[in-house]
Computed example of a mutant assay.
Amino acid sequence: MSPSEVVPRFIREIYRVRPDLKVTRTAIHKILFEVKATLPENDPERGYLPFYWYKYGPYSEVVESSLDSMKRQGVLREEKTETGKTLLVLNASPGDPGSVCEDGLSAVVGRIVRGIDPYRIGTFVDRIYWDYAPYEFMPRYKVDFLPGFEGCLASRLEGQRTLSQWSLCDPETPDIDRLEDALYMCEAALVEDPLFRDFNDEFVAYASGAGKAFDIARMDESIMRPVILATQAVALEIWYTFAGGVRILEGGHDDYYNGRLGRWEQEYRKTLSALAPMVSTYTGYIRESAGRIPSREPDERRKRILSSLIEGYFSI
């Protein structure tokens, strides 16, 4: 049997266990990836679930086409939330999808699906990154760094000027400091592979500009939002570029997709070539923004960092 014949059984099993489940397509991909990862290495069912890592985590073209097919057949239907999100729901008209998996597989699917909170699906996806992503850079960037922008911007409303906006998660650490620390952890975890040599150069240039952007945000909140928004916009493009490349590496895809590698590399090179001028424009904008701010004494955070560096130097 081919994956396209088997995967619909897995999807039906998800809804047999939780008939009232309402989740996004992305969540279905992650659930089935977790199923595959949980099955024993020698289980033949694993071969029916081919995945590669992409922009939103593990993705399967077979799962995607199976969802489309089941929607056309009336097994599943789409439902819009008030926020515009599209959820997949079991259609009542076809009746009970029935138990369609063997006992072992059914138990694995049931255990995973019953443990999911549909209202906190992001937590489940984050764990997928930390538990299974092939490179440390991925959870550090996608889970730790990128979401930090939303918290940073939400804590400072447009037009608001204050020097005491602190993270709700850690009241002793400014949220911009947390964002900067997360970025430097990403820089330390860059993927050292020839395919990513040019990407890494662009990332280092971006990190340097972002560090200046965070300084600007600390010194003058009147221009904090546009500077942080620009930093966030480039950060997203960096992630999309990385995601287009990581699926090419051996750890980023199952053998099922080996025939795609040539096309994927062409797409990655094209995206990477577009990233370079974007990073250059961004760093130029940050330098110009920094030049419009009067020089000030280093803040306490910078003094502590400088002090620790000096102490470390003289202790050698």
Rank of each mutant, 00 (worst) to 15 (best):
M138N: 07
V204T: 13
Y52H: 13
D198P: 00
T81N: 09
G98Q: 15
C101G: 12
L39T: 10
K212N: 09
E41Y: 10
G151L: 13
R304P: 03
R260Q: 10
Y141D: 01
W53H: 09
R46F: 13
K30Q: 09
D220K: 15
E221C: 07
A37V: 03
C152Q: 02
V279Y: 15
R225N: 05
A182L: 03
T241M: 11
D103T: 09
L168P: 04
D198V: 04
L179N: 03
D198E: 14
Y48F: 12
E102H: 14
P50A: 01
D175Q: 10
P97G: 14
F33N: 10
P134V: 00
P94D: 14
I228H: 01
T283I: 06
K22N: 07
F242P: 05
R197H: 14
F33H: 09
R296I: 05
S315A: 14
R296Y: 05
R260Y: 15
Y48A: 11
M70L: 11
Y184M: 04
I128L: 10
R263E: 01
W166K: 12
E172F: 08
I11N: 15
D193Y: 04
L105V: 08
S295L: 06
C152Y: 05
P277I: 07
K270Q: 15
L179S: 13
P171C: 06
G84K: 08
Q232N: 12
P171Q: 15
A290L: 07
E172A: 08
V62H: 12
R287D: 14
G115C: 07
Y119G: 13
T123H: 15
Y59I: 00
M224Q: 04
E237I: 01
V191R: 12
R18Q: 09
S106T: 04
W53T: 01
P139Y: 07
S66G: 12
I112K: 15
P226Y: 15
T231G: 08
S155R: 15
P147T: 00
A37T: 04
V227G: 03
G110A: 02
V100Q: 12
V7E: 04
E265R: 15
